[in-house]
Amino acid sequence: MSYKGTIGILTGGGDVPGLNPAIRAITIRALREGYRVLGIRRGWAGLVELIPERDADNSENVQVLTKDLANRAGRTGGTFLHTSRTRPSHLPKSNLPPHLRDKYTAEINDVTPEVLRNIEFLGLDFLIPIGGDDTLSYAQRLHEEGVKVVAIPKTMDNDVP
């Protein structure tokens, strides 16, 4: 099937009730408009831990979102994509995935080059992060790197001005 492009959706930070309905709304509209939609699992961690090789099993990091999946999940609270508090620009050495441990050796690492490579590997034309201050401040960083970002603010701490 031919698509207009590919949209990636991720959720970061604390788990709140409206995430699944937001994912559903984005997915249903994007599919209707002719886009392919990928869910990035566990927030930014999914883009850090993804292995950019065609034969790699990345099912823990990314999943294709369909109308049926979005409709089922849209009736529940939380996020079926799961979430994390991973910040790729400040990743502790102990949290590096095995395939990056030889490349990054500082106590705190900026793995943004890996995230950018993984966004390209997935063929993402747009990235829609749903999150609070930490999630969206990193989304701003990716925007500055040239990624087309549509951010959706979500907070349980009232820290998104």
Rank of each mutant, 00 (worst) to 15 (best):
Met1Lys: 09
Met1Ile: 13
Ser2Arg: 14
Lys4Gly: 05
Lys4Asn: 15
Gly5His: 12
Thr6Gln: 01
Thr6Lys: 15
Ile7Asn: 14
Leu10Ser: 12
Thr11Met: 14
Gly13Lys: 10
Pro17Leu: 07
Pro17Tyr: 08
Asn20Cys: 04
Ile23Trp: 07
Arg24His: 06
Arg24Asp: 02
Ala25Pro: 00
Ala25Gly: 12
Ile26Ala: 01
Ile28Gln: 00
Arg29Ile: 04
Ala30Met: 02
Leu31Ile: 15
Arg32Ile: 04
Glu33Pro: 02
Glu33Met: 10
Tyr35Ala: 06
Arg36Ser: 13
Val37Leu: 01
Val37Cys: 04
Leu38Arg: 06
Gly39Cys: 02
Gly39Met: 02
Gly39Phe: 01
Arg41Tyr: 02
Arg42Asp: 04
Trp44Arg: 01
Trp44Cys: 02
Trp44Gly: 05
Ala45Leu: 09
Ala45Met: 13
Gly46Glu: 03
Gly46Phe: 08
Leu47Thr: 06
Val48Pro: 05
Glu53Trp: 01
Arg54Ile: 13
Asp55Thr: 14
Ala56Met: 08
Asp57Thr: 02
Asp57Met: 02
Asn58Pro: 09
Ser59Gly: 07
Ser59Thr: 10
Glu60Asp: 09
Glu60Tyr: 07
Gln63Ile: 15
Val64His: 07
Leu65Arg: 02
Thr66Gln: 00
Thr66Ile: 07
Asp68Thr: 11
Asp68Asn: 09
Leu69Val: 09
Ala70His: 04
Ala73Lys: 13
Ala73Tyr: 01
Ala73Arg: 05
Gly74Ser: 11
Gly74Asn: 09
Arg75Met: 11
Thr76Val: 00
Thr76Leu: 03
Thr79Leu: 03
Phe80Val: 05
Leu81Asn: 03
Arg85Phe: 01
Thr86Lys: 04
Thr86Ser: 05
Arg87Asn: 06
Pro88Arg: 00
Pro88Lys: 04
Pro92Phe: 10
Pro92Cys: 11
Asn95Met: 15
Pro97Phe: 13
Pro97Ile: 10
Pro98Gly: 03
His99Phe: 14
Leu100Met: 10
Leu100His: 14
Arg101Gly: 05
Lys103Gln: 15
Ile108Trp: 10
Ile108Glu: 14
Asn109Arg: 10
Asn109Gln: 06
Asn109Phe: 08
Val111Leu: 11
Pro113Met: 08
Arg117Val: 00
Asn118Asp: 07
Ile119Phe: 08
Glu120His: 06
Glu120Val: 03
Leu122Glu: 14
Gly123Thr: 10
Phe126Ser: 00
Ile128Gln: 05
Pro129Asp: 03
Pro129Ser: 12
Ile130Arg: 03
Gly131Glu: 04
Gly131Cys: 13
Asp134Pro: 04
Ala139Leu: 02
Ala139Ile: 00
Gln140Val: 04
Gln140Ser: 08
Arg141Leu: 10
Leu142Tyr: 06
Glu145Thr: 00
Gly146Cys: 10
Ala151Arg: 05
Ile152Tyr: 08
Pro153Val: 12
Thr155Ala: 09
Thr155Gln: 08
Thr155Phe: 06
Met156Gln: 03
Asp157Ser: 11
Asp159Phe: 04
